[in-house]
């Protein structure tokens, strides 16, 4: 589904060029659960942003289902983000003063999907927050907020969920619950999940772990014990 070839990302800063990604090749097949690990500044967030069409590669190609999405105009990329991708962030990124239900409805507003209240309610049920639909972010715990964010990413029926340190702000137990939720999405719904994390215990939920250093993928491990993934 995802194929990166020779992707480089260079930022120009006052101190000179920063090579966030150097010649990265990566293939992710549909239904895979991939964890990207690495230290701060290793390039993992940059890789996520490029995968999520939030950023463009400086050179190299990014093909999504064979389509070169790295060179699409912004409006098409925005449409793609809305329809095919779901984002989960470390800091949840919920909008203030909006109920959980409205947060989940948000992507549907931009998709002009009808019947969105119903779809949003369903997504909340799926993450176990049916009884919190009318709570605002400040009335929810961190784990609940992150589950709202996951419901929001799910509601568009995405093919790919990109999770940037989804457990970073949560305690271990809540973090495990959120990870279980993501694992279920992969297992039960065949959604592809790419996850960035610092923690080995979190990465262990994934079938495949990439390790990054200095903008390059230095290790790519697939755990053998699991069932085959469909291509």
């Amino acid at each position: 589904m995802i194929r990166l070839e020779g992707v480089t990302k260079t930022y120009l800063t006052g101190a000179g060029a920063v090579h966030a990604l150097r010649d990265v090749d990566l293939e992710v097949r549909a239904g895979e659960f991939v964890a990207i690990m690495g230290q701060s500044g290793s390039g993992k967030s940059t890789l996520m942003n490029i995968l999520g069409c939030l950023d463009r590669p400086t050179s190299g190609t990014y093909r999504l289902d064979g389509r070169d999405v790295g060179r699409l105009p912004d409006s098409v990329r925005a449409k793609l983000r809305g329809a095919a991708f779901g984002f989960v962030f470390q800091s949840y990124n919920l909008l203030p003063r909006m109920s959980a239900l409205e947060q989940v409805e948000l992507p549907l507003i931009y998709q002009r999907v009808p019947n969105r209240r119903h779809l949003a309610a369903e997504a909340l049920v799926r993450v176990g927050l049916a009884d919190r639909a009318h709570h605002q972010p400040t009335q929810l715990s961190g784990g609940q907020q992150q589950r709202v964010a996951i419901a929001r990413s799910l509601v568009v029926n995405p093919r790919l969920i990109l999770a940037d340190e989804p457990t970073g702000a949560l305690d271990t137990k809540t973090g495990q619950e959120v990870m279980q939720l993501l694992t279920d999405l992969v297992d039960q719904r065949g959604i592809t999940v790419v996850l960035v994390t610092h923690e080995q215990s979190v990465a262990d939920f994934a079938r495949r772990t990439l390790r990054m250093r200095d903008g390059m993928i230095v290790e790519d491990v697939v755990r053998p014990s699991l069932r085959a993934v469909s291509g």
Binding site: A78, K79, G82, L95, P107, Y110, Q111, R152
Partner: peptide
């Protein structure tokens, strides 16, 4: 700015 970023990430286009 943050709200705009969130809306963009969940699929809002520039003209939205």
């Amino acid at each position: 700015i943050r709200e705009i970023g969130i809306r963009r990430a969940v699929g809002a286009q520039a003209n939205d």
